[in-house]
Amino acid sequence: MKIYTREKFLELPAGTLYATGALVVFEGLFVKGETIRNAEGKAIDWSCRDLTMIASEDTGDMLSRFNDMAENGASYPLEDSYGREGRFDDSDIFLVYEPADIREMIAVFQEAAGDGPRA
């Protein structure tokens, strides 16, 4: 894994797997989408897919579904769309997973999905 500043992170390619936070305490699991540039071509933001978000129609539906999960044990699928990151905080740092880390995660996910013990 490697830590990037916001400025350097903006230049990473779509498909980059990452978490956000502060040194030692990172949260979430996201996939970086396309970098968004202003009219002059400067990278200013990006789209991302939040791998901790459930599928929903809108914010009200999302809140209702999370409450349904917490109160009634309901289950909803993973969100499959990208949205704009939109924080614009130059002090943000990003923990970026490298190919070896992702292969390790795949092995862990396969085991968790019931696809047999890890080799």
Rank of each mutant, 00 (worst) to 15 (best):
F26T: 02
F30A: 01
F30S: 02
F30T: 04
V31A: 04
V31K: 07
E34W: 03
E34M: 06
I36R: 00
I36S: 05
I36D: 05
I36F: 04
I36P: 00
N38G: 11
N38M: 09
A39C: 12
A39Y: 10
A39D: 13
E40W: 12
K42L: 07
A43Y: 14
I44D: 00
D45V: 15
W46V: 13
W46L: 15
S47I: 07
C48D: 10
C48Q: 07
R49V: 00
L51K: 01
M53N: 01
I54N: 02
I54Q: 00
I54V: 04
I54E: 00
I54Y: 00
A55C: 09
A55I: 00
S56H: 10
D58G: 04
T59A: 09
T59S: 02
T59F: 13
T59M: 13
G60Y: 07
G60W: 05
G60Q: 13
D61K: 03
M62R: 01
M62Q: 01
L63H: 06
S64V: 09
F66H: 06
F66R: 11
N67T: 10
D68T: 09
M69N: 03
M69C: 06
M69H: 04
A70I: 14
G73N: 01
A74D: 13
A74M: 04
A74W: 02
Y76Q: 12
Y76F: 15
Y76S: 05
P77N: 08
P77F: 04
P77E: 12
L78K: 07
D80C: 14
D80H: 06
S81V: 09
S81G: 10
Y82R: 02
Y82V: 10
Y82I: 06
R84M: 12
R84P: 11
E85W: 15
E85M: 13
G86W: 15
F88Y: 14
F88D: 08
F88N: 09
S91V: 10
D92S: 07
I93E: 03
I93S: 04
F94C: 05
F94R: 14
F94K: 03
